[in-house]
Write a protein that binds this DNA or RNA. Structure first.
Lengths: 333, 333
DNA sequence: AGTAGTATTGTTAGCGTTAACAGTCCTGTG
DNA sequence: CACAGGACTGTTAACGCTAACAATACTACT
């Protein structure tokens, strides 16, 4: 088993001290160009790679960040992750991308594990933990930024889409087109975004003095089959519904499928509005009307906020709120 | 800045030696139940989390694996990643998921960075590096498994979809339906899978003594817009084509869009076969006929192979080949 | 030549953990 | 009662690196 080449090997080979090699590696001035070149040659020749873990032990910084998402295969989060990773790379950080698989238990596991890895910071997307559990978990971590989740009180950063506004403009659009009986596929019961969208949904009804029925709402897993099952149930139980507002686009695609099964034409019989504008939204037929916040931007801004916080900006770097816009396509013209 | 709690803190508080705490943490027998409980209490109370990096320094194992993919937002790789992550988690490992953004430069960066992080093993998907560069890069890494890429010679593991067979059965299907002029959207020129699919594509023609024209092939980026542009070009230049075989499903979706633009009906005017069976494939209209290898399985098997290799199985744990199957849908019935 | 100042290099200690070995304290046996 | 042998606990020295300080060599002056 060939050991890794260490700095000591390089130093011996080059006939200089450890510190000189260290200075060359970290480009900390104070080394004559001659020795620098010589050392660099040896490094090259020996294929030396400094050990980040030894370095981390002494500097207390690992150059590593944690990025926690419910499901990295979900196009929403994969775009957020891309934005976040780009920003991190640009600053010389690496990222641990962790899935919670929508399970709070797994989420706690992942947080613990990132803690033990001594990540320099944490980007936590759409946490499903309740307030106290989240608070408790974050106590351990030095610097954290939440995405799509608000936690009152102490200094964690947050980047949010204005979900209430999203629910509002989506529902308002449907009401403007004359719909009055609008179902809501609400996603997981413990989703914060889901609750805010519901608020917006209700607020839109209030704006036009229309009333809504709590029976028109149905929770579901935030995926295609969840949306399909919930839409099927809702449309069967409430044939009076002429529109559906959906927790996200995958759910909306599920709703599309349910309509097809039930022989309902979209948007003729039922109009459908999704949320997120995932790539798929434009590709399904009919293409989805949906509520967009740039996911890439969300991830990028969040990571930049995290990096600023790591560098000590705490007062000014608290919360960023991104406004959604409605993308009107065929499913609810 | 509140320091992390260290093992020394726990030891002092509990009135025992460092080693005793270490033994409790690692569950290495030889500790009386009484002290064990006592120490565990203190650990709990102090919220102690062992430092993986200090541990890594002495044990020479980080409990961390590298997973390198061209684009984690691509549904193909995100499923592979899921499979791989699950397998890794099940064995107590964490995973660095890294994107190469389809750039060889970025790929080298990422590999270097993982090396410096001292990952215990490396899963490298669809590497775009050429033979010597790849070989060179892997010299540094202790244990590696390649996915979707073959590298002759020395001991790296590999998990492959039988891409040649995939190209063969897809093209054979089209030939059986009477198509004779079949275009090929070949993906990036340096893609190994692409080359193998081309072989299969040619082999299928040979089976029925038909001939193909090299002009029917067009390279493209492996994404929707790449496929669209290439399909547009190909179908304009060669109106005689009645079918397209595509590097992957995203490319196939692009081809679908190109047909729409050109007023060509799928499958009536042009039949389209994709590869990979990403979730989108079943959702677009017309739904895509495509060639599937379980991506989740691919990732899982690859990770299991990697873990076995880490544990020392080198002879028996070389190569796994997964056979694809054709999923027939509307785009090429 | 002597000296202050600067550029360059070296030395020491310690980051938080574990491997390896060295005790210490029992318990049962001859 | 002495003692082997297990059960438990402690001590020491790394792991590979950098911060902080110490030493040396060189430069340009007076």
């Amino acid at each position: 088993m060939p050991r890794y080449v260490t700095m000591a090997d390089v130093a011996r080979e080059a006939g200089v001290s450890l510190m000189t090699v260290s200075r060359v590696i970290n480009d900390k001035g104070e080394v004559s160009t001659l020795t620098r070149q010589h050392v660099q040659e040896i490094i090259e020749r020996l294929g030396y790679r400094p050990s980040n873990i030894a370095r981390g032990l002494v500097t207390q910084r690992t150059g590593t960040l944690g990025l926690v998402v419910p499901d990295s295969a979900n196009p929403f989060f994969s775009e957020v992750a891309r934005g976040a990773e780009h920003a991190a790379y640009a600053h010389g950080y690496n990222v641990f991308l962790c899935n919670t698989e929508e399970s709070t238990e797994q989420e706690l596991n992942v947080l613990k594990s990132l803690d033990e890895k001594r990540v320099d910071g944490l980007l936590l997307c759409s946490s499903r933990l309740d307030k106290t559990a989240l608070h408790q978990a974050l106590l351990q971590h030095p610097v954290t930024v939440l995405v799509n989740r608000w936690l009152e009180g102490d200094g964690v950063g947050a980047v949010l889409a204005d979900d209430r506004l999203g629910g509002l403009i989506a529902t308002r659009h449907l009401l403007q087109r004359g719909h009055r009986k609008i179902g809501f596929l609400a996603g997981p019961p413990n989703s914060h975004s889901g609750r805010l969208r519901m608020e917006g949904y209700h607020a839109a009804f209030a704006e036009v003095d229309a009333t809504w029925d709590p029976e028109w709402m149905e929770h579901c897993t935030p995926m295609v089959d969840g949306g399909q099952a919930a839409a099927y149930k809702l449309l069967t139980a409430h044939p009076e519904l002429t529109a559906l507002f959906c927790f996200n686009d995958l759910v909306a695609v599920g709703a599309l499928q349910a309509c097809e099964e039930l022989g309902l034409v979209v948007p003729g019989d039922v109009a459908i509005v999704g949320t997120d504008d995932i790539p798929l939204a434009a590709l399904v037929r009919p293409a989805l009307t949906t509520c967009r916040v740039s996911r890439y931007e969300l991830g990028k801004q969040a990571m930049q906020l995290l990096l600023k916080r790591i560098e000590g900006c705490l007062e000014e770097c608290q919360t960023i709120i991104l406004k959604p816009e409605l993308v009107i396509r065929e499913s609810a013209p």
